[in-house]
Simulated assay, not measured.
Amino acid sequence: MNPFFLFFRKFRKYSRNHVMKASLLTISVIIYSVLSEFYIENNIASSGIHSLFTSLWWTMQTITTVGYGDTPVYGLAGRTNGMIIMVIGIGSLGYLMAGLTSMLIDIRLSSKLGERMAAEKKHIVLCNYNESTKKVLERIKYDGIDIVILNENEIKGDNEYTFVKGSFLRENDLIRAGIKKASSVIIFSRAEDKDQMGMDAENILSAMIIRKLNPEIRIIGEILNPDSREHASSFMDDIIIKGDVSSMLIYSSIMIPGIPEFINDLLTSDSISEENVDKGYMDRTYSEFIHIMEKENKIVLAFRKNDKIYLRKNSDEKLDVESYIFIKN
Rank of each mutant, 00 (worst) to 15 (best):
M236F: 08
D193K: 11
K242P: 00
K180D: 14
I223Q: 00
S206K: 01
A177L: 05
D200E: 10
D200H: 06
R170K: 15
K180Q: 15
K194E: 15
S253I: 00
I186T: 09
M236N: 02
G178P: 10
I241P: 03
D193E: 15
A177M: 06
K194W: 11
F163S: 02
A177V: 06
V185A: 03
L205H: 09
R211H: 09
M248F: 11
I186M: 13
I241D: 05
S252T: 06
I217W: 05
I209K: 14
S228D: 04
A191R: 15
F168V: 08
A207H: 01
I223P: 00
I186Y: 14
S189I: 15
G178I: 10
M236Y: 03
V185K: 02
I209C: 07
F168C: 13
A182I: 05
G243E: 07
I186P: 06
L174S: 02
V245A: 12
I210W: 02
I239P: 00
V185D: 03
L224M: 14
R229S: 09
M197E: 15
I250W: 01
N203M: 09
A232L: 05
D193Y: 13
A191C: 14
S253F: 01
I209S: 04
S206C: 11
R211W: 06
D193W: 10
G198T: 13
G221L: 04
S234D: 11
G198W: 01
I219M: 04
I217Y: 07
M197P: 01
N214V: 05
L224Q: 10
D193P: 00
E230M: 06
D227Q: 14
E222R: 01
I186E: 03
S252N: 11
L169W: 02
I250K: 10
F188E: 05
I187L: 12
M208H: 12
F235A: 05
A232Q: 01
E230S: 11
I219D: 02
D173S: 12
R190Y: 10
P215V: 12
M236L: 11
S167A: 08
I241F: 00
D173I: 03
V245Y: 14
N203F: 02
G243C: 07
I239Y: 03
D238A: 06
S234N: 12
I179E: 05
R229Q: 12
Y251F: 10
F168G: 14
K212H: 14
S234V: 04
I223V: 09
K165W: 10
S246M: 08
R190P: 09
P215S: 12
R211P: 06
